[in-house]
Simulated scan of single mutants.
Amino acid sequence: MELLDPRAGAGRCWCCFVFPEKPRQTGGNLRGTDMAVFCLLCGKRFQAQSALQQHMEVHAGVRSYICSECNRTFPSHTALKRHLRSHTGDHPYECEFCGSCFRDESTLKSHKRIHTGEKPYECNGCGKKFSLKHQLETHYRVHTGEKPFECKLCHQRSRDYSAMIKHLRTHNGASPYQCTICTEYCPSLSSMQKHMKGHKPEEIPPDWRIEKTYLYLCYV
């Protein structure tokens, strides 16, 4: 099957983001033809148009899936389902080397590199290798000078999350999360979620979101 370049105009249906096998099939209804469904922005391929439509919400910044426990929003049902395990404590993925359990398969895959020594992510600036993608992204900021984390209290910026947490503690021991209702600090997102459950529903503003408790901004 010939895959059409998303940048090319021929053979593309702009209404449903479908690329038929041959350009002449674009006339009329595309149902029933042998087709591949692509995202025009990143080229990712899908078997069903409904899956593509959900994927496009990620690019649009739509976060229509809301956690009933903490009101955090997510771009897909899969992301929400993975997040819900932080409330239920479910860790269904077990490491075959050490028995550690994780909430999702991708975290398990990253963890196993500790045992295998695999470092698939290489810096194209200095050649240094890393086992995790976010480690490479953080390291690369040494070369670019980028500091995407900003303190809400004094606007100082940092290259990575851990450096920002250390900085926040210089503000009289401030933790990264602060309750907007009683101003209590919490050291982790999970502890902040538990803290918020201690407030009466009528105390919480209708437009409240867990993101409002963050004492830092992230421009990544």
Rank of each mutant, 00 (worst) to 15 (best):
S188I: 05
L189V: 07
A79F: 02
R72V: 01
D104K: 03
L217C: 09
H91C: 02
L136C: 03
T107D: 12
Y161I: 08
N172D: 15
S100I: 02
L189Q: 07
E96F: 10
S162K: 14
K147E: 14
G99F: 10
R82W: 01
D160C: 15
Y214G: 01
F97H: 15
L153C: 05
C126L: 00
Q178W: 09
R159H: 04
S86E: 04
F74Y: 14
C151D: 15
G117R: 14
Q135H: 15
H91R: 15
E146V: 04
F130V: 10
C218L: 04
P92F: 13
P201N: 13
M196E: 05
P205H: 03
F130K: 00
E211V: 07
E96H: 10
C182S: 13
F102A: 04
P206A: 13
H139K: 03
R141Q: 07
H115P: 13
L84N: 12
S131Q: 07
L153T: 13
T170K: 11
S175D: 09
S158V: 01
H111Y: 08
T170Y: 03
R103A: 11
E122C: 02
L215M: 14
R159P: 03
K112G: 07
E118L: 13
K119C: 14
L132C: 12
E184L: 14
H195N: 02
C182F: 11
S190C: 03
C179Y: 12
H134P: 05
S188E: 07
R159T: 11
H77N: 15
E211S: 12
K133L: 15
C95N: 08
M192R: 03
F74E: 02
G89H: 01
T180F: 09
C151E: 04
K194Y: 06
C95W: 05
K197P: 01
F102W: 09
M192V: 02
C123S: 07
E96I: 12
L108K: 09
K197C: 08
H139Q: 04
K197D: 10
M164F: 14
K194E: 12
F149P: 02
E94S: 15
L84A: 10
S158A: 09
H171Y: 13
S86Y: 06
I204R: 06
K112Q: 15
K109M: 11
N172S: 15
F74P: 02
E137V: 09
R103E: 01
C151A: 11
L132I: 12
T78V: 09
E122N: 02
